[in-house]
């Protein structure tokens, strides 16, 4: 279970990215974070593995608090938080398999980590994960030779390699065509149930959130203005979440 309370983030230029954001997410669910562009979705997601450090509030994952965590504790915690990116962020010249194996680097000591020494069991698991995301036959191909959808599946396998409790996804399908989008979203929804993961996805398309998410968090101007089951997302809620955007469109 992931519990967030009273999270505040103010950027050095005075811009308030997050204002008193709090929620609680269950394992085995997909949560979509939606809201207008510039609302603070990325700020929120990147606070959850402390790529961004909020100045106040708490993030608790399995009894471990992240906002005040030391560097060592943070590294420890990140091992259980996978992340996938809009631009995949793979090491392009390396093979799909090697990219997946990078998911174990958090567990390694200095020298094995530097030298990329992986155990036989790790290699077998990486292969199995590639099989699970449907890429077994591309395992030895360099990442740069894969399509966007395939790269994102390698990214997912890399996150799974961490045996995570949480997977954070910032606009994971923004660079993909509709068919790959469906593949990726279906895969994420399936994995959440199968492996009892807490998956959090930033999206800017409401219909994708409706189709794939169990739970929705609506952000507007840094505030959490909706936090409920997907079924509860009605027109009034949407109007609240996208308030600013409409104000801009109407003048």
């Amino acid at each position: 279970m992931l519990t967030v309370t009273a999270l505040n983030k103010t950027y050095p230029n005075g811009k308030r990215g997050l204002i008193d954001v709090g929620f609680e997410l269950q394992a085995g669910t997909v949560t979509a974070i939606i809201g207008p562009s510039g609302a603070g979705k990325t700020t929120l997601l990147r606070s959850l593995n402390r790529f961004i450090t909020p100045e106040s509030g708490t993030i608790e994952l399995d009894g471990l608090e992240l906002v005040g965590a030391t560097r060592a504790a943070l590294r420890q915690a990140r091992r259980h938080i996978g992340m996938i990116f809009q631009d995949y962020n793979l090491i392009e010249p390396l093979s799909a398999l090697e990219n997946v194996l990078h998911g174990t680097l958090g567990d390694k000591r200095l020298l094995p980590g530097m030298m990329g020494l992986y155990t036989h069991a790790e290699k077998k698991r990486a292969m199995a994960l590639l099989q699970e995301v449907g890429l077994a036959e591309s395992a030895t191909q360099p990442a740069k030779s894969l399509s966007g959808g395939q790269k994102q599946r390698v990214g997912i396998a890399r996150a799974l390699m961490q045996s995570p409790q949480v997977i954070l996804c910032d606009e994971p399908i923004a660079s993909l065509d509709p068919q790959s989008t469906a593949t990726i979203m279906t895969l994420l929804a399936k994995l959440a149930k199968q492996k009892q993961l807490t998956i959090i996805i930033n999206l800017h398309q409401v219909d994708l959130a409706r189709e794939y998410a169990d739970h929705i968090i609506g952000i507007n101007a840094g505030r959490c203005v909706f936090d409920d089951a997907t079924a509860a997302l009605d027109d009034a809620a949407l109007a609240r979440i996208y308030a600013q955007e409409e104000a801009m469109v109407n003048g």
Binding site: F51, R75, Q76, R78, I81, N89, L90, L105, R158, Q162
Partner: peptide, 13 residues
């Protein structure tokens, strides 16, 4: 960032 997210240390990254 991709490797920092896994908890990897500086030299591994």
């Amino acid at each position: 960032e991709a490797l920092e997210a896994t908890g990897a240390g500086y030299w591994a990254i």
